[in-house]
């Protein structure tokens, strides 16, 4: 036995507690956690397990499990062209929206971070889409996209460009939805990135100025590395949001034309609440869950190395 333990054992003052006293800490912590545990169980954990459960069944019209089919629902989906189309649309949609949202909000945040007169006004404007509901924004864009009286086509007309069938053409519909989504999500990303920018100590830029570093040198060597945790967070959040887009699809195109905008969440909705196929809808939901999980894990694996946490 070493010297330390010898001394400790000789002079230790033993604590006398019964089981009730020993668990005092545990009981208190469970009490503090209980509101969260209850809420999460009711609104997150139960629906999640129920979804997984239902994905192995055929259901009746009310959504009760009727016949156990094992992995049939999944096999059916992987075989269906409609599902493949939906997956393709979902990935394309993410590709259109995520990089644009991150880049545009980063750019706007850089602008709004400058100390200029009246910058508060622009900060408010750039953030304002955050305060607007999905339904309201979609309706606004529905008017903008209108083929004959819409503002967009009118403007194009002034430039001598032929009107674009924004929501009516299967080639344009996904792009139109993407534009709407970018517009809607910029507010939130902008706000978070601006917060990240303002967290960077001004001293660092002053020190760099004394060394003679120019704007872009500072941007790439100081701002971006120090902002990387924020950008990484925004990237993941935006990806997840883009996979979960629903409202704008429902209002603008209802998944059409020719399923061109049938994003996965909209397909789930159609399966469950229009076709009453709760089994395949649940299977789609489970697939979506694993897609998001996998993608997030991949991002952590490959991008987190480049993130500098302070």
């Amino acid at each position: 036995m070493n010297e330390v333990m010898e001394k400790i054992e000789r002079y230790q003052v033993p604590k006398k507690e019964n089981l009730w006293q020993k668990t005092a800490n545990l009981r208190t912590s469970i009490l503090y956690l209980s509101p969260a545990i209850v809420l999460f169980s009711v609104f997150v954990f139960y629906p999640m397990f129920k979804t997984v459960y239902l994905s192995f069944f055929l259901t009746d019209a009310r959504g009760n499990a009727a016949l156990f089919v094992g992995l049939e629902n999944y096999l059916y989906l992987f075989d269906s062209t409609s599902f493949k189309k939906s997956m393709k649309a979902t990935w394309l949609f993410a590709l259109y929206t995520v990089p644009s949202i991150v880049l545009i909000s980063f750019f706007l945040a850089l602008l709004a971070n400058e100390k200029l007169r009246g910058i508060g006004f622009f900060r408010t404007i750039f953030t304002s889409t955050m305060g607007m509901s999905v339904a309201a924004s979609a309706v606004i864009w529905l008017f903008l996209f209108h083929p004959t009286v819409g503002v967009l086509n009118t403007l194009l007309g002034y430039l001598g460009i032929r009107p674009i069938p924004w929501l009516l053409d299967s080639k344009w519909a996904l792009v139109s939805i993407a534009i709407t989504t970018i517009w809607m999500n910029i507010g939130f990303s902008f706000l978070i990135i601006l917060g990240g920018l303002q967290n960077i100590s001004q001293d660092l830029y002053e020190s760099a100025r004394i060394d003679g570093a120019g704007y872009f040198y500072q941007l790439f060597r100081i701002t971006i590395p120090l902002l990387s945790p924020t950008l990484f967070f925004i990237l993941i959040i935006t990806f997840i949001n883009s996979f979960q887009s629903f409202g704008q699809v429902d209002i603008l195109t209802k998944g059409g034309p020719a399923e061109a905008t049938n994003l996965i969440v909209y397909a789930i909705y159609q399966d469950a609440f229009i076709n009453y196929q709760f089994g395949t809808a649940s299977a789609r939901a489970v697939i979506l869950f694993f897609m998001v999980l996998g993608l997030t894990l991949l991002q952590f694996k490959f991008l987190e190395k480049k993130v500098h946490y302070q």
Binding site: S201, D203, L204, E206, S207, R209, I210, D211, G212, R221, I222, P225, L226
Partner: peptide, 16 residues
């Protein structure tokens, strides 16, 4: 600043 041939130590050191 960079043309003044100075160096500066900040209160919080301004380390990257």
């Amino acid at each position: 600043p960079n043309k003044r041939e100075i160096s500066m130590v900040f209160q919080n050191y301004a380390l990257y």
